[in-house]
Write a protein that binds this DNA or RNA. Structure first.
Lengths: 225, 225
DNA sequence: CAAATTCTAAAGTAAATCTAAAGTTGGTTG
DNA sequence: CAACCAACTTTAGATTTACTTTAGAATTTG
């Protein structure tokens, strides 16, 4: 899961990023309006953490822009004061949750989980596709009710496939979602092959179907047919 | 075990905290409604000691909030007078016990123990997982009926694992539960490794099984399988 | 201040991730 | 349709990251 953190206090920005990275999220950082705007225009995120007060603009405007562009990201507002006005404005404009600084990182984490559940997982903790079940709390995967032991990257990749079933995903899209932007974009993405192969092997080992169809020259499609 | 003490008389607050810290509880303090509310929204506690009369609000409202959020903390009300009304209201709203000021600290301690026993330990003083027995009164641990000598941190950590068996606990979650909030969140939690290693070594020394499974990149899970 | 506990740091080990290269398949073109 | 190239698959192993273990420094406790 990929998160954009928009926050002008650099210390807090780094603290949040370190914590969420340890919790196995892919994090990208924006310390002002301008950078946040650029990133939002270019990349897709699952969650955006949005500080309202930025040195060069207002987070509310970013929120409006996100909603206008109809982006699928869940939005959690970070606000310095428990200002009821800001809170109401934010939630009215379509933010999914609101957290008042200072906050405990574990609290942020559980709110992120709640928003992800609501937004991307149809309200459940388990994302299922036929005989494959992904438990997003214990971060485990079962095939025909037998657990397969997967690494973080394998887990992320399989979840990304299932959440984007029936859509062709290019290697570039996969790389963009599973790695943050300090990876060299000009590189070839051959390392994806290795992870893909591991997932396919592990699913087959429990008698699962290989739903990951190779679309030659295009990418991959996770699908029944 | 982690305790939140909500009490506006600073002297009493400090006195209780000092005493309970010596009794090996992790204590956090809130001297008004606002702070207590913030802490309750953010952290998990095993016990909350709740003064009803606060300068900026009513403890009963906090109690309602705790019950509404369905928090697992046991609640003991501290009340200045033996006001029967407050007592009945508190217990009706789901408080677990009630103690009237002034009280003996040892009396408070035994009430805390009783609530913990009822709430977390299924009514018993001994929490058991196969060949491992934790006696929560004498705070001793037996493996195959032989005592292992553990330090406070080791005792707390093992009890936390057993009470959260079959759940993956991240290093962050462990740190949050076993240390109070003056620990620097940005830090790495490498010191956990040392305590963990000590627990594993001591359990093995009496022929016990190492139920603490390492989930690489995720955390630890105390489990049979 | 002596002893025990807790934390820090560093060396050792294991696992995950990435790289590279050999093998295979599919599509294109003469 | 045969030959070739590009894209994908698979495997081995190099690199990086995460965890384990140990020793000892710093802190707390009696």
């Amino acid at each position: 899961m990929k998160i954009l953190i928009v926050e002008d206090e650099t210390d807090l920005l780094i603290t949040i990023s370190n914590y969420l990275t340890k919790e196995n999220y892919i994090c990208e950082l924006a310390e002002n309006f301008q950078k946040a705007f650029e990133k939002i225009s270019i990349y897709e995120y699952d969650i955006i953490l949005l500080d309202i007060t930025l040195p060069d603009g207002n987070g509310i405007d970013l929120l409006k822009y996100i909603k206008k562009k109809n982006l699928k990201a869940g939005i959690i507002i970070l606000s310095a004061k428990s200002s009821l006005d800001d809170k109401i404005t934010g939630l009215d404009l379509g933010a999914d949750d609101y957290i008042t600084k200072p906050f405990q990182l574990s609290e942020l984490n559980s709110r992120i989980n709640a928003v992800l559940r609501k937004h991307h997982f149809d309200g459940s903790n388990v994302v299922q596709f036929n005989e494959i079940k992904v438990d997003t709390v214990s971060k485990t995967i079962k095939v025909n009710d037998e657990e397969i032991i997967v690494t973080k990257k394998e887990y992320d990749m399989l979840l990304y496939f299932i959440l984007n079933k029936n859509r062709v995903l290019t290697k570039e899209a996969i790389a963009e979602h599973l790695w943050n932007d300090n990876i060299d974009q000009a590189d070839n993405f051959d390392f994806i092959y290795t992870h893909l192969n591991n997932i396919r092997r592990k699913i087959k080992s429990k008698g699962g179907t290989d739903y990951i169809k190779t679309i030659y020259g295009m990418g991959y499609k996770f699908s029944d047919r």
